[in-house]
Amino acid sequence: MDATLIGVLAVIIAAMAFDYTNGFHDAANAIATSVSTRALTPRAALALAAVGNFVGAHLGAKVAKTVGSGIVELPPVMHSLSIILSGVIGAIAWNLITWWFGLPSSSSHALFGGLVGATIVGGETVLWGGILDKVIIPMIASPVVGFILGYIMMIAILWIFRRGNPAKLNRGFRVAQSVSAAGMAVGHGMQDAAKTMGIVVLALFVGGYQNNTEHIPQWVFFTSAGVLALGTYAGGWRIIRTLGRRVIHLGPPEGFAAETVASGVLYANALAFGAPISTTHTITSAIMGVGATKGKYAVRWGVAGNIVIAWVLTFPAAALVAMGVYYLVNPLFT
């Protein structure tokens, strides 16, 4: 087995480890609201999320191509494999840190931060225009859009069903949440499995095993989707508790509104623009927007503030970790 193949396999294994941590870290994105409102049992919700992630992965080719070619530019040499591996390890480290503290940070931005940090110290090219268009602008815009649409959606529900029986409405929205949770899970797969696919394709390209970053082999689809689904089914209970209970008190109508808005934003970005946005930012901001309809004291802004701090720190923190990892990993690839 030659050194290049070993390097490619190391990156693929690390990418799948990231994929798995992404699954249990971001399981909350799809199911926290459904579990907290008792629309679904925890295990049923996790199973639904796992299946949705698997399905969604096969619709995320545009996002995968953005990650594979729109963030950094790496030549097809061994040195590039050490950069990719360092970036992925940086992202895994940040995922584990934020999971431990129960903070719903973005696995996507951890991956981008890690990749950019390792690329900088590795002396290769960061596509700052792509970072601005595909990472920074969506990072700011998606939470704002999620918050505003969550607020509007909840106001509409309150007005449309203003004369309804609360008990009957809660039962109906619990059923509806099964659909909105499934939609959220598919949207998460379209975004997050696709990011892992982009990393694997990039590794195959720089390792010389394919000629471009446009083609995604079928085994990459299935492997990335399957590992993400397994990670999701393992569950990230610390973060599920934060999103489902600590930000606001969610009822079935609120849960349905937040999930519907967030999944819509994910679909629009993945299918229309191929923009790799954060599912975590989108659903969390939608939950905050829904909660804001109950008044300024309904949202626990202290918890929300901690989440926002984690959002801001994610990109640079993962980049710094990846920079340190690079100096340990790179000698193995020379």
Rank of each mutant, 00 (worst) to 15 (best):
116 V>C: 06
171 R>A: 15
180 S>V: 10
99 W>E: 01
164 G>W: 13
104 P>R: 03
206 V>C: 05
111 L>K: 07
206 V>Q: 11
156 A>R: 14
163 R>A: 15
157 I>K: 00
106 S>E: 06
166 P>K: 07
177 Q>R: 06
191 Q>P: 03
172 G>A: 10
159 W>Q: 15
155 I>V: 15
162 R>P: 07
113 G>S: 10
146 G>H: 00
127 L>M: 13
163 R>P: 09
200 V>W: 00
176 A>P: 05
197 M>W: 06
154 M>S: 10
195 K>H: 13
140 I>H: 13
153 M>H: 13
86 S>Y: 13
192 D>W: 01
105 S>Q: 02
118 A>N: 08
205 F>S: 00
129 G>S: 10
206 V>K: 01
151 Y>C: 08
88 V>M: 12
116 V>P: 02
199 I>K: 06
193 A>H: 03
83 I>W: 00
105 S>F: 03
169 L>H: 01
122 G>A: 12
154 M>K: 07
164 G>E: 13
158 L>V: 08
189 G>Q: 08
119 T>Q: 09
152 I>W: 12
156 A>C: 15
152 I>T: 15
132 L>E: 12
161 F>A: 01
102 G>L: 00
172 G>C: 12
110 A>T: 10
180 S>M: 08
145 V>S: 05
183 G>L: 14
155 I>M: 15
200 V>D: 12
147 F>C: 10
110 A>R: 08
85 L>N: 04
100 W>D: 14
126 V>R: 10
108 S>Y: 08
117 G>R: 07
192 D>G: 01
112 F>N: 03
117 G>H: 02
165 N>V: 14
151 Y>W: 14
151 Y>I: 02
84 I>D: 00
140 I>A: 14
86 S>G: 10
188 H>D: 06
195 K>Y: 02
153 M>W: 12
178 S>V: 10
175 V>D: 14
89 I>T: 09
112 F>T: 05
130 G>K: 05
128 W>T: 10
133 D>K: 15
176 A>D: 03
138 P>Y: 08
141 A>L: 15
193 A>I: 04
144 V>D: 11
118 A>F: 04
197 M>R: 03
86 S>N: 12
166 P>Y: 09
116 V>D: 03
158 L>Y: 09
139 M>Y: 03
165 N>W: 13
121 V>P: 04
106 S>Q: 02
196 T>D: 05
136 I>P: 00
127 L>D: 04
102 G>N: 02
198 G>H: 08
101 F>T: 14
168 K>R: 15
196 T>G: 08
148 I>H: 03
155 I>D: 11
110 A>E: 06
173 F>G: 02
